[in-house]
């Protein structure tokens, strides 16, 4: 089972003593803030965890793997995540 917002809220409730509503609201505002920041074109660096950066992709030719049909993929901006050293070594171990 994957970790969800509900699990994170539970953790704040258990460990920090926020009440259930506060925990839930906090989790929402946390991810809202990340979305807003990236949405405004700003990168995020969370030391010990990783960096979220933005990358501009130019238009390119793609192919539908099912039908083999060729199609132009428009230029776009995407989010990329680069895992931090600390998290990286914790996951590898």
């Amino acid at each position: 089972m994957a970790l969800t917002k509900a699990d994170l809220a539970e953790k704040l409730y258990d460990e920090i003593g926020l009440n259930k509503r506060e925990s839930k609201e906090f989790i929402e505002s946390f991810f809202n803030e990340l979305n807003n920041t990236l949405g405004n074109g700003e990168e995020i660096k969370l030391s010990g965890f990783g960096n979220f950066s933005l990358r501009a992709k130019s238009e390119r030719m793609g192919r539908n793997p099912k039908t083999g049909e060729e199609k132009m993929i428009s230029a776009r901006r995407v989010v990329t995540f680069k895992v931090g050293q600390k998290l990286k070594s914790r996951v590898e171990a």
Binding site: D7, L8, L12, G48
Partner: peptide, 10 residues
């Protein structure tokens, strides 16, 4: 709270 969340995620 922020540190605790990131801890649990890691």
């Amino acid at each position: 709270a922020v540190k605790s969340m990131l801890d649990l995620m890691a």
